[in-house]
Amino acid sequence: MDQVASALTLSLKVAGLATLVDLVLGVAVGYLLARKRFPGRELLDTVLTLPMVMPPTVLGYYLLVLLGRKGWLGGWLQDTFGINLIFTWQGAVIAASVVAFPLVFKPARAAFEAVDGRLEQAARVLGVSEWGVLWRVTLPLAWRGILAGLLLAFARAMGEFGATLMVAGSIPDQTQTLSIAVYEAVQAGQDDVANMLVLIISVTCVAILLAAGKLAPGRIAAREG
C-alpha cells in the first residue's frame, strides 16, 4: 500500500504542476495564434501540436538531448546553478508538460477563435483597455473550452509513461509515477499491485473525461440551441 500511495501522490503532484505550466503557456500561445497574424503562424501551430502525435519515447529522447548534462540547456543549468533535471520529479513534470501541452493549446486556440469579435470591439468602443477586454470579455466567454482542455491535459499527464521514464527514470518514492509503477509491478509479477494501480488510473481518467465532455463547447452550444 505504501508503494501505491507514493506513486499516486507523485502522479497527482506531477500532473497538477504539469497542468499548471500548460495553463499558463497553452492559454498564452493559444491566444497569440488566435488573435495575431504573422508569417509562419500555421507552421508554429504544427510544431506545437507534434507532441500529440509523436511517440513519447521520441519526445523523451529530445528532452534528454536538451536537458541532459551534455545538452545546451541542461549543461547551462548544471554549470550555472548546479541544477540537474534528469532522473528527478521536476524532470517528470517537464516531460508531462510537453506531452500534454497540445491538449491545452489546441482547445484554447479554438475557444478564443469562437469568441465573437464584435463583443470585444464593443468593449473597446466603451473605453475598456486591451487587458480589460481579455479579462472581462474574452476569457469569460472562452473559459469552458480552456477548462475542458485542462482536464484532458491532466488526465494525459497522469497516464504519461514513455517520455517520463526516459527523462525521470523509475526511482521508487522519487520519480515512480502510477503508470511506471504499473509497468514495474507487471515486470515483478505483482499482479495485485498492478490491478490496484490500473483501477486507480482508469477510474480517475474516466471521471476526468466525463467532466471534460460536459464542458465541451460543442455540447454547450447544442444545449443552448
Rank of each mutant, 00 (worst) to 15 (best):
A95Y: 06
G117K: 07
L25K: 03
Q121H: 14
F38W: 05
G26S: 08
V128G: 03
T57Y: 05
T57M: 09
L43E: 07
V125D: 10
A96Q: 12
P55R: 10
G30K: 01
L73M: 12
R124Y: 12
K70V: 07
G82N: 11
L23I: 08
L23N: 00
G71R: 05
L33K: 07
G26E: 04
P55H: 11
I83P: 03
K106F: 00
P56C: 01
N84C: 08
W76K: 07
A100D: 03
A100M: 10
Y62T: 09
L103E: 05
D79S: 15
L20S: 10
L103Q: 01
L43T: 15
P102I: 01
V58I: 15
P56K: 03
T88K: 06
T138I: 08
L25I: 13
Q78L: 14
L119A: 04
V125T: 15
V29E: 00
V53M: 05
R109M: 11
L139I: 15
W135E: 01
G68R: 01
V24N: 01
L67M: 12
I83E: 10
G71M: 09
T49K: 01
L73A: 12
T138S: 15
A114F: 00
V133N: 06
I83H: 04
R124Q: 13
F38N: 08
L20Y: 05
G68I: 01
V29Y: 06
E113F: 02
L50P: 03
L25G: 00
V27W: 08
L43G: 13
F112L: 04
A100S: 15
L67W: 02
V58W: 09
Y31E: 06
F87L: 13
T19D: 09
V99M: 11
T49Y: 01
E120C: 13
L64N: 07
L103G: 04
L43Q: 10
V21W: 04
L50N: 07
R109N: 06
E42T: 11
T46K: 01
A92V: 07
A95I: 09
L73D: 06
L25W: 00
R35N: 11
P107G: 08
V65R: 02
L20N: 07
F112T: 02
P107S: 11
R109L: 06
L73K: 03
K106L: 15
L63C: 08
G127C: 09
T46L: 14
T138M: 10
V104N: 02
V47Y: 05
D79W: 05
L20D: 00
L66M: 13
V104M: 05
G117I: 09
R35V: 10
F81L: 15
E130N: 14
G68D: 04
L48R: 12
S129L: 06
I94E: 05
L77K: 03
